[in-house]
Design a protein around this nucleic acid. Structure first.
Length: 467
DNA sequence: ATGTCC
């Protein structure tokens, strides 16, 4: 047996040496040359079948890697034209978000997509973008803040019964904001999510566990908030009679934990696709049937549950301090990927700043620090992949907001609406967002309005420039 | 979105 015999079978580079090593071992064990060549061919046809051990394991690993790389190269090319997708609120969406969605719809793994009326430019997939892929998950299709979500608790208290001062002191005492911020050790609360065995399944998760435990129950920075306000229910719903109720609304994510998961798997996805078209570099994907894809899926879903646990603790603390139990609660994630059957195929539906809106499903679409948010019920629009907007969406970028908005105008806007603001920055001013009424109007075929929430006492992180 | 490098 020599290299020529092996080469004839079509082995390349390092695989030739590994095949020869294995063949020699088999010859030493008394196997016939013809049988060995047949065995090598079998390994070549199905490397994964030989990975677990035996004389051909190293060869199988090399062949598997070569084949994966080949698949990656083959699948790196973008379609020449984007697959068609529907847009809600075209007149509200800037061209940049459109361009990004076009690139996403040219990915070879893309199957369907939609753009929500709050859409604006983001990294990779635009915010407000919905993208369905086959056997692939895109870390930047979910975003940096994995599992970013909303929660509303309706409390059995009349809106007027909680004074502004009391609301303010409750928010100061029971919520924490800011990058890197966690709860002080003596105030730290436990949650079921921290006891999941999932944390032990990956070195990365194990490593991030202490940070996650430190930051649980907190709210982060940017557009995250916790606020007291008034929920107006026009018709009996949510198990409640029509009326006005005190309610808590929160917007939070998976904090440093989720951000690091996103960073880790985004880098991994880009490394797996070195030949991906530059325009789509930030949309690099992980095949779902690989170890990497499975690992991301597991970590992403843990970050999703962790983000909801943050809300859960925020609402538990506030309700407990008021000595009540919520009469109704609604929550939804708006940065996550889901397995969803679309036109008979199981697809991976990425919602990056989009609210799940399956028929009958409740969701929350906030406006701004001073404008109403809405409790909605999905209508299950297939062309929108059962989605709706996740908010009003930015009209001005952070810098543009700081440069163009006058502090006086923002203060006036808040005063007119009776808003008390703790923290907050000019880059989160209501004027930096699209009009929520417009955004809601553009998606009347995606969701029905259940109730309206008017914020009253709002806490956010201190922004770059105070209002 | 995040203490901007796991």
């Amino acid at each position: 047996m020599n290299g020529k015999h092996i080469q004839k079978l079509g082995f390349e580079k390092r695989a030739i040496k590994l095949a020869l090593d294995a063949a020699n071992l088999r010859e030493d064990a008394g196997a016939k040359r013809g049988d060995i060549l047949e065995e090598l061919q079998a390994v070549q046809n199905n490397p994964t079948g030989y990975l677990s051990g035996g004389v051909y394991a190293d060869l199988a690993a090399e062949l598997h890697e070569q084949q994966q790389a080949g698949v990656s190269r083959q699948s790196a090319a973008l379609r020449s034209t984007p697959l068609p997708y529907r847009v809600w609120g075209q007149d509200l969406i800037d061209p940049g978000a459109h361009d990004q969605m076009d690139v996403a719809m040219r990915l070879p793994v893309s199957r369907a997509g939609a753009l929500m009326p709050d859409a604006h430019v983001g990294y990779g997939l635009p915010i407000g973008g919905v993208l369905a892929t086959e056997n692939a998950v895109i870390p930047y299709g979910v975003g940096v803040d994995i599992g970013c979500s909303m929660m509303l608790s309706v409390l059995p208290i009349a809106p007027g019964a909680l004074s502004t001062d009391e609301a303010r002191s409750l928010l100061m005492k029971h919520t924490r904001f800011g990058a890197g911020v966690g709860f002080e050790k003596r105030d730290r609360q436990d949650h079921e999510v921290l006891h999941e065995s999932t944390w032990k399944d990956q070195p990365l998760l194990r490593h991030l566990y202490p940070k996650a435990a430190e930051q649980i129950g907190t709210s982060g920075s940017g557009n995250h908030f916790v606020e007291f306000g008034t929920l107006k229910l026009r018709e009996a719903d949510l198990g409640m009679e029509p009326g006005e109720y005190l309610a808590v609304l929160s917007h939070s994510g998976s904090r440093g934990f989720g951000a690091q998961v996103a960073g880790h798997f985004t880098a991994l996805a880009q490394k797996l696709h070195p030949n991906l078209d530059r325009a789509a570099q930030k949309l690099a994907w992980l095949p779902m049937d690989t170890h990497e894809g499975e690992a991301y899926w597991q970590a992403m879903n843990l970050a999703g549950r962790y983000a909801l646990a943050n809300h859960d603790l925020i609402h538990r603390r506030l309700a407990h301090a008021l000595n009540v139990r919520p009469t109704a609660q609604v929550s939804n994630s708006h940065n996550l990927a889901w397995k969803q059957i679309h036109q008979g195929r199981e697809l991976i539906v990425h919602r990056k700043g989009a609210t799940p809106a399956e028929r009958g499903r409740l969701g929350l679409i906030p406006g701004s620090m001073a404008d109403p948010g809405f409790v909605v019920r999905g209508r299950g629009e297939e062309a929108a992949l059962n989605s709706a907007s996740h908010g009003a969406g930015r009209q001005l970028g952070r810098k543009a907001a700081a440069n163009t908005l006058a502090k006086k105008d923002v203060q006036g806007y808040l005063r007119e609406r009776g808003i008390t603001l703790i923290g907050g920055g000019i880059d989160e001013a209501p004027q930096a967002y699209k009009r929520i009424e417009d955004v809601i109007a553009r998606q009347s075929d995606l969701v029905d309005i259940v109730a309206e929430f008017q914020p009253r006492v709002v806490r956010m992180d201190t922004g770059s420039e105070d209002i």
